[in-house]
């Protein structure tokens, strides 16, 4: 089963006013569990709106959001008939069963934000605590974990995001931009979400800062086997870190699939104003001139390998 499934989801801002605006228009997509999926699209293509639907912060105007097959916005009346047959509720009177189901739904919804961790755009603006470690602990504390467990999770999240022990007792406001970003990321990772959703995680960072952030994300994904969703408009980063890619344009999904499948449709991407990675483009130009290079080259390292092989120099 797909980890996340969006079933004909639409989202309209300020419906019924002159400011009405469609942010998502009948979007259907599937996100595989246990891998990194990139969502690419221009500003205003509906990417950021979509993220907020995934952990229940916003509700779709129509359509369903399924997490592990469970409709996260479901209502008692939607599921009553089906759930009543479950052994859990079978012995109950219809009224108390309905009550129990409603309670269950409410509880599931409250826990949703811990299962689907959301890292907003420019997350460093959400830091508020006196020390870095206390800020990272905010999420786990809201989960109601024991102090010892919280401490452990803070250290674990700090390790994933490469935050040194010396930083943990500093004020988050004394850190550099890149460090703040990593602290904010750690704050979400510390909740150990099954699905980690990030909105432009590297926006406004220098190349080193970008690498740090993406390596942290990949570390987390590899070690925990969780599902990661990255929203970005940087093709380079997508090509480098993502397994699957979803392309959005004008509130719609125009293509989804594995990295190779999506990048094979260069023309289509160019039409929506998105670029393929520069190195991929260069390799294509070389191929057009007759060099026998493979098609699926997305990083400079891969290009180096391919060119060395072509020149008969062997692996580095």
């Amino acid at each position: 089963m797909d980890k996340l499934y969006l079933d004909h989801v639409s989202y309209v801002y300020s419906a019924g006013t002159p400011f009405e605006q469609k942010a998502l228009d009948d979007v259907t997509l599937a996100i595989r569990g246990g891998c990194i999926t990139g969502i690419i699209g221009h500003t205003g293509s509906g990417k950021s709106t979509m993220m907020q639907l995934l952990n229940g912060l916003a509700k779709p105007s129509s359509g369903k959001v399924l997490l592990d097959g469970y409709d996260i916005n479901c209502d008692v009346n939607d599921v009553l008939e089906e759930w009543k047959k479950l052994p859990e509720y079978s012995g109950m009177s219809p009224r108390s069963a309905k009550k129990a189901i409603a309670a269950k739904i409410k509880k599931t919804r409250a826990k949703l934000c811990f299962r689907v961790g959301l890292v907003m755009q420019y997350p460093e603006y959400q830091l508020f605590e006196e020390t870095v470690s206390r800020d990272i602990a905010f999420g786990p504390r809201n989960m109601g974990l024991a102090e010892e467990e919280i401490r452990q999770r803070v250290l674990e999240a700090a390790a994933f995001t490469d935050i040194g022990e010396d930083l943990l007792e500093k004020s988050p406001f004394d850190l550099s931009g890149g460090q703040k970003r990593r602290v904010a990321l750690a704050g979400v990772i510390a909740m150990r979400p099954e699905v980690l959703v990030l909105d432009e995680p590297a926006a406004g960072l220098d190349p080193l800062g970008r690498t740090f952030i993406f390596e942290g994300i990949r570390n987390y994904q590899r070690k925990t086997g969780s599902t990661v969703l990255i929203v970005s408009h940087s093709m380079e980063d997508m090509a480098r870190y993502c397994d699957d890619v979803i392309v959005m344009s004008g509130a719609r999904v125009i293509r989804q699939g594995s990295r190779e499948e999506v990048f094979a449709h260069v023309d289509e991407l160019a039409e929506t104003g998105l670029d393929i990675p520069q190195i991929t483009h260069l390799m294509q130009l070389l191929r057009a001139r007759g060099l026998p290079l493979p098609e699926n080259i997305y990083t400079v390292d891969e290009a180096v390998e391919a060119l060395r092989a072509l020149l008969g120099l062997g692996a580095k």
Partner: peptide, 11 residues
């Protein structure tokens, strides 16, 4: 935005 970010951390 900030409210959403903190809600996402369970506030």
């Amino acid at each position: 935005k900030i409210m959403n970010a903190q809600k996402a951390r369970g506030a």
